[in-house]
Design a binder for these strands. Sequence first.
DNA 1: TGGAACCGACCGACCGTTCGGTTTACTGTA
DNA 2: TACAGTAAACCGAACGGTCGGTCGGTTCCA
Lengths: 199, 199
Amino acid sequence: MSTETAASRRTTYTPDSLLEVAVAVFNERGYDGTSMEDLARAAGITKSSIYHHVKGKEELLERGVNRALDALNGSLDEMEALPDAGELDRVEQAVFRAVQILVEELPYVTLLLRVRGNTEAERAAQDRRREIDRRLAGFVERAADAGALRADVDPHLASRLVFGMVNSVAEWYRPQRDLAADDVAAAVTRLVFDGLRRR
Amino acid sequence: MSTETAASRRTTYTPDSLLEVAVAVFNERGYDGTSMEDLARAAGITKSSIYHHVKGKEELLERGVNRALDALNGSLDEMEALPDAGELDRVEQAVFRAVQILVEELPYVTLLLRVRGNTEAERAAQDRRREIDRRLAGFVERAADAGALRADVDPHLASRLVFGMVNSVAEWYRPQRDLAADDVAAAVTRLVFDGLRRR
DNA sequence: TGGAACCGACCGACCGTTCGGTTTACTGTA
DNA sequence: TACAGTAAACCGAACGGTCGGTCGGTTCCA
């Protein structure tokens, strides 16, 4: 009642609620493997009705990946604005937070991680993602310069591997079935910093 | 000269040499995003000529993913046939070897990792891959039962994360530009077992 | 000279998108 | 309470184009 006239009616779509359906189908069948007919069937409306809400298939992709990119960029902004913790703590925080956001925005981040680069929108998403990877690698590099990391693994390689592990969570995580986001984030963080070996 | 009449003539395609081209294009544009016309252009022959070598697009996918699956299964067979090393050593060996094969058979493993499940061939590949994941998880579980792993991370979760890191190498590794396979494998193994933190 | 390798033309099916029109839900007026 | 007006939501039919695949040949070479 506070925000708008919406929320009373339902059964009808907004661009955002349609996006939710579309992204789910994209992740199941792949973007290129999804036809507008597939989306229409999943949404329970006809193909032509989709065009009442969005300009086309590519806009759905663009909105989907941008939601993930905005969330990831936002948390990086927050972390950089924070008073300087130790360089190692900052990396630990980045890893933990990355897992949190991946789980919170799972469908959208999943979509982003699978973008191939066939269209202009996809290449733009890849560019924005590379910028995020660069910022994360920066954290790792500063920690390495401060001598907080082991010296026998190149910081760039370490960054790729660590956030590769983080992103791999999108391959299997299911909200209902699996642990809470923070538990997964904690496990990843422990593994990344102290390894699998018993001490 | 030892194997066959081939190797003398070139400029013509065999199913395998065509596969090499096709898999490269699949990985660049995605399987569904690749048209037979794309493949023909990349191979330097016409669309219809492709059908002289293979039955169709799906056979190329099937051959591609099976090459990766056979390589992975083969190395698992080898490892299980080996005299029993310690349970921890076996996990370490599995991680190292997984990276090696991923790099050796990079295009084929990359293709496998991106399979979506839209066709029967894709679902068969997913099933075979799940079996491999199960065998790998078995190694980790046995090491955990033997008390060789840290107790505060669930072995199933640990397995997913570790081999998630391994597989993430396919996202960025380029043979010319990057380290040798064994160097990457060593880095992954170090990170997985002893972590990023300086000691 | 026979088979392997390849080609150009073409097929039906399906693609993303458009368009004209209908239904639905809500509003202001009486 | 009744109803006309309106805009959002939706639909069926069709568009031009591209898809994977077929077919009847021609070229090449051992």
